[in-house]
Design a protein around this nucleic acid. Structure first.
Lengths: 337, 337
DNA sequence: TGCTACAATGCAATCGATTGCAAAGACAGG
DNA sequence: CCTGTCTTTGCAATCGATTGCATTGTAGCA
């Protein structure tokens, strides 16, 4: 690409007949410079559309003004529940960072090490990280915290660890879905969860439980079943559910993928959705919208999440203030419930 | 994050009792340094797990060793056909770049300007760009070429413009799908395209045409109809198609989203897929797999595409050699055809 | 007029790595 | 023993921007 004539502060300085310190100060809006000079210099810079050399500034300032978004290395289709909306989230993060003058780097890292953290930090390429909590072992998150790595997590927080995070309100999500089912007159509402040992799932269950109790129902162990977020596990879990409780008339499923599997099973048994059995999913992925039977599902505000991740991480970097935020969740009503 | 004791070349130099030039050369494996010293220094660096300061090196070298992936700013659901597989592609690109020692920056840019190019280049933050051709006006791609911007495009190349690109083989994709339909005995095969003025669509049509002719069939204008890749347009187009040619028994659709819409229409008219009308989509998005009726569709090898984009762009930056590659495409046979 | 105070600007060091050139040491040939 | 050659290493300038401190200029005040 053809080089411009005006490349450095020095060049501007020459044009303006001042020193390069003055130019630097003028462009940074320092109060040391007279209004007049400031405007003159800024005009010159604008006219030659001058772009400051970011690496040089970063070197001098000892920071990179860049944040890394850490993603799992391989996306063989739909890996984890929280991977799927990566791009949508990335967009929010990108905008949030951009507004604060930061750039967004994407790095790929396996769940098996956290060497990337030191590597990227020590080499001065990034100032902090955004990680999907679910992609990392508990112990890794803990290491990050212990090394005082500047990072923020997306997803259900690891308990007893002081770090910045943003998460969707799983309890509210569970309650919202369950309440909808109750309100539409369902009596036997099942819970088809993700992995039972996942906190995320436990919170959703709590929401489910609370909503039931608030309506005078109680939870029936026969109506509880767990999968691993995949389509196949949704099918298997739904089959079990129908055996344990053939009389169920609704099911709150922890992922859209499992929900679609569940619907297949229900329909193959000759029952109708939602007339005989209502189904609510979670995540609001594209597959929920364009499914043959559009899914009623729980959606998180991803653009907002991205923005908060960006803002709070940078706030942490600048002030070491630890913020944690739980963002609201909404029910998208379509055809399945 | 706690600072390490060994941070700079100077620190290593002190430990090894040499000058910092020697350390620099040793770590860069310069032939000027004796094997012995080299190993000694490298060992020290390793033991203190030293990470070189990348911004400083980049400043000195006048390059950033960073590539920007340009994505459209807003993902309101399924914007453009080629946006959806962003993350999968990103993964391939990331790996390709990483292998070559480059980092991956993500920048958001509207289709309405290309100021980002100059801004990022002049500021020295990136060495080149990867852009989705379909997200930019022809004139913008042309501007990029004229400014000698180092970039590579993904998607059908703009004609008569010399630049690096990687694209899926649309002609082959069209032919592959059509041949499959012919081979399974279909007689009246329709073409439901994306925008008629898009080259991508025209190539797919050519594949369709060639396959028909090779089998002794010819193209019937009544079997041709166009949409804009969206679900809604798929529905509308399919309705038109069924009016123009009620006797059709197969349709090759240019996107999975439209294909799903088309199937809805077909089924609502009381016909069966694939028995009465076979449907083949394009892209192999998750919605194709998990659709109620899993879609037979055309898939591009995105991880490969990403890797090639990375490699060829860097090759171009280093040698200004313009490479263009058309990657193969495969048919994924599921239930719809 | 002379002195202080302050506003505006310039000088030069600095961030950390690279690299052309100079210098030092080793060694062989005469 | 001297000199030329070659290998190995160090010195110091450089990339471009920031910033503490010194300097210049100007105005205010007695």
């Amino acid at each position: 690409m053809s080089k411009k004539t005006v490349q450095t502060l020095e060049d501007i300085a020459r044009l303006a007949n001042v020193s390069r310190s003055t130019v630097s100060r003028a462009l940074n809006n320092s109060p040391l410079i007279s209004q007049e000079t400031k405007e003159r210099i800024q005009a010159i810079a604008r006219d030659h559309d001058f772009r400051i050399n970011v690496p040089a500034r970063n070197l001098r300032l000892g920071q990179s003004h860049t944040i890394a978004f850490v993603v799992a290395p391989c996306y063989m289709g739909a890996t984890s529940e929280e991977d799927l909306f990566g791009l949508e989230m990335l967009s929010g993060i990108g905008n949030g960072l951009h507004a604060l003058g930061y750039d967004l780097l994407v790095i790929h890292a396996g769940p098996n090490d956290i060497a990337w953290a030191r590597a990227y930090l020590d080499s001065g390429r990034v100032d902090g990280f955004i990680v999907m909590t679910s992609n990392h072992k508990r112990s890794h998150i803990q290491s990050l915290v212990e090394m005082h790595t500047p990072f923020i997590g997306w997803g259900t927080p690891v308990p007893n660890l002081d770090y910045c995070w943003v998460t969707g309100d799983n309890r509210a999500g569970g309650a919202l879905a369950t309440r909808r089912l109750i309100d539409s007159g369902r009596q036997r509402i099942a819970f088809l969860g993700g992995p039972a040992d996942s906190l995320t799932v436990q919170y959703r269950f709590q929401g489910y439980e609370q909503a039931l109790q608030a309506a005078g129902h109680s939870v029936d162990a026969n109506l509880l079943v767990y999968g691993d977020y995949t389509h196949a596990s949704g099918i298997a879990a739904m089959q079990r559910l129908l055996e344990q409780a053939p009389d169920l008339d609704a099911v709150f499923v922890n992922s859209d993928l499992m929900a679609i599997g569940a619907i297949e099973v229900i329909q193959s048994r000759g029952k109708r959705v939602p007339e005989d059995i209502a189904v609510i999913g979670y995540d609001d992925l594209p597959i929920a919208i364009y499914n043959n039977l559009p899914l009623t599902t729980v959606r998180q505000n991803l653009p907002l999440a991205g923005k908060l991740l960006a803002q709070n991480l940078i706030q942490y970097i600048q002030t070491t203030a630890i913020t944690t935020v739980t963002i609201p969740v909404e029910l998208v009503v379509r055809k399945s419930a």
